[in-house]
C-alpha cells in the first residue's frame, strides 16, 4: 500500500506518483481530523471527561503529598505524564467509538479514503484534543503546586508535541483494533499502557529535567532520541498495518 520514499533510484514519474499519494493521504487525514474535531467541539464528549478527569487527579495527588515541598520538582514530570496517559485513554476510547453509530466506519472504509489516512487522521484529532487537555492541566498544575514550569518553554513544548504524537498514534491504532471487541473500554488501557512505557519514561525524564533551572544534560538528551525513534517507528508501523487492523 504505502510506497517507499526512494526517490533517488526511481524514474521521475514514479517519484511524482509517490508524492501525489503522500499528499492525498495527508489531505484525507486532515479531512478526517477536522471532522472529528468538529464533532468533538460540538458534543465535548471526551474533552469534558478527559479535562475533568485530569484536574481531579491533579487535585487528588496534592493530598497524596505536600504540594509545596521541593519533592514536587522531582516528581512533577511523572505526575503530569501519568495524568496525560490516563486522560488519553478516555480520548482514544471515543475516537473510533464515534464511528460505530449508523455504521459510519463501513461508510468510511468503503469510500476512497485509505485506511492509513483514516488512522493518521484519528491520531491527529486525538493529538489536538490531548494537547488541549495537557495545556489546561499544566496551567492547573502550576497553580495547585506553585510550580514554575515555563523556565524552558520551547524545549518543553517540543517534548510535549513529540510525546503526545506518540501517545496519540498508539491510541489511534489500538482504538481501531479494539473498536469491535467486547469490553472495548477495558481492553484499550490494558494494551496501550505497557506499550507506552518507553515513551512515558522518556517524557518524564525530559519534563523533570526541564522543570529545573539548568539546561538538559547530554544523558537526558538521549531521551529525546527515544521519543523521536518511538514516534517514527510507531507511525510507520501504524501506516503499514492500517489495513490489517481496520479491515477484518
Amino acid at each position: 500500500m504505502t510506497p517507499g520514499c526512494c526517490t533517488g533510484c526511481t524514474p521521475n514519474w514514479v517519484a511524482r506518483e509517490h508524492r501525489l499519494f503522500a499528499m492525498r493521504t495527508l489531505r484525507q487525514a486532515i479531512s478526517v481530523a477536522r471532522k472529528d474535531l468538529a464533532i468533538e467541539f460540538r458534543t465535548k464528549e471526551s474533552l469534558n471527561a478527559a479535562g475533568a478527569f485530569a484536574i481531579v487527579i491533579l487535585l487528588l495527588f496534592s493530598f497524596a503529598f505536600d504540594p509545596a515541598a521541593e519533592a514536587v520538582r522531582e516528581i512533577g514530570g511523572g505526575l503530569l505524564w501519568l495524568v496525560f496517559a490516563f486522560a488519553g485513554a478516555l480520548v482514544f476510547n471515543r475516537g473510533f467509538a464515534r464511528e460505530l453509530p449508523n455504521e459510519c466506519l463501513d461508510a468510511l472504509l468503503s469510500s476512497p479514503l485509505s485506511a492509513s489516512s483514516l488512522l493518521i487522521g484519528k491520531a491527529m484529532a486525538s493529538f489536538v484534543l490531548l494537547l488541549g487537555v495537557e495545556a489546561v492541566s499544566l496551567a492547573v498544575f502550576g497553580i495547585f503546586y506553585d510550580m514554575r514550569w515555563w523556565i524552558q518553554p520551547w524545549q518543553l513544548a517540543a517534548v510535549f508535541v513529540l510525546a503526545t504524537w506518540g501517545i496519540a498514534t498508539l491510541g489511534a491504532v489500538f482504538g481501531a483494533l479494539t473498536v469491535n471487541l467486547r469490553l472495548r473500554e477495558l481492553m484499550l488501557p490494558i494494551i496501550i499502557y505497557p506499550l507506552l512505557i518507553p515513551l512515558l519514561i522518556a517524557a518524564i525524564e525530559l519534563t523533570n529535567g526541564l522543570f529545573s533551572a539548568e539546561p538538559l544534560k547530554p544523558d537526558q538528551l538521549l531521551w529525546g532520541r527515544v521519543l523521536i525513534v518511538f514516534d517514527i517507528v510507531f507511525t510507520a508501523l501504524a501506516l503499514a498495518l492500517a489495513e490489517t487492523i481496520l479491515v477484518n
Binding site: K35, N102, E103, D106, A107, P112
Partner: peptide, 16 residues
C-alpha cells in the same frame, strides 16, 4: 473510487 456502499446503517454522523 467507483464504489457506492449502503449497508444496514445510514453511515452519516448524528452530530454534524
Amino acid at each position: 473510487r467507483q464504489l457506492g456502499f449502503l449497508g444496514h446503517g445510514i453511515g452519516v454522523y448524528e452530530d454534524l
